[in-house]
Amino acid sequence: MITALFLLHLFLIAAYAAYSRLFQRDHTSRFLAELALLSLLPFFGFLLLLLLRISHKSNAQQKEDLSALYGEFKKTRSVAKLGRLQSADIIPVQDLLLFEDPLTRRNALTRVIKQDQLDNPSILLDAVRDKDTEIAHYAVSIMTHRIAKLELKLNRLRKKVGKTSDDLLLLKKYAALLKHYLKDTILDANSRNKWRAEYEAALDAILRKEKNEKLYWVERIELALSIKDYHSARKYGLAFFKRFSDQEEAYLLYMRYCHLTGRYTMLHRTLQRLKSSRIPFSPTALETVRFWDQGGQHAS
Rank of each mutant, 00 (worst) to 15 (best):
S67K: 10
R243S: 15
R30F: 13
T164F: 13
Y181V: 12
L223G: 11
R106S: 01
E210L: 12
H27F: 14
W195M: 01
H268M: 04
L177F: 10
N193M: 09
F31K: 05
D167K: 06
L69P: 03
W217C: 10
Y251I: 00
L215K: 13
L97I: 06
A233G: 10
L82Y: 13
F6D: 09
P283M: 03
L178I: 07
A205G: 06
D188S: 12
S122N: 10
I142Q: 11
S165C: 10
F44D: 12
Y199S: 02
N155R: 14
Y264F: 15
L225Q: 07
I90K: 15
P42Y: 02
P102N: 03
R105G: 06
V289P: 00
R263I: 01
H231E: 12
A80S: 07
L168P: 08
K81S: 05
R105Q: 04
Y199K: 04
Q62H: 04
D188C: 05
S20D: 11
Y216K: 01
A68P: 03
L97N: 03
L82F: 13
D101G: 04
L274I: 09
S276M: 08
D116T: 08
D89H: 11
H298S: 14
I135T: 03
W217P: 00
T261K: 00
E151P: 03
R146C: 08
V79A: 02
T104P: 00
R192S: 12
H268R: 05
R269S: 10
M1V: 13
E213H: 04
E213G: 02
A202P: 01
E213A: 08
L124S: 08
V112Y: 08
F46D: 00
R158F: 15
K63L: 15
L5E: 11
D167G: 02
F44R: 06
E34I: 07
R243Q: 15
I142V: 15
H231T: 14
G295E: 05
A176T: 11
L225D: 03
L238I: 10
R158I: 05
W195H: 05
D167C: 01
H27V: 13
G296S: 08
T284M: 05
L49K: 00
I13P: 06
K242Q: 06
K275Q: 06
S191M: 02
L50F: 10
R156L: 15
L40H: 01
G295W: 00
D89Y: 08
K75F: 09
E210V: 07
A36P: 02
Q86D: 11
S282T: 15
C258N: 01
F241R: 07
P283F: 01
H298R: 12
R196V: 07
K114Y: 13
K153M: 14
L103H: 13
F11L: 07
L267M: 11
L85W: 14
R158C: 13
L22H: 03
T270H: 07
I54C: 02
W217F: 15
A80M: 05
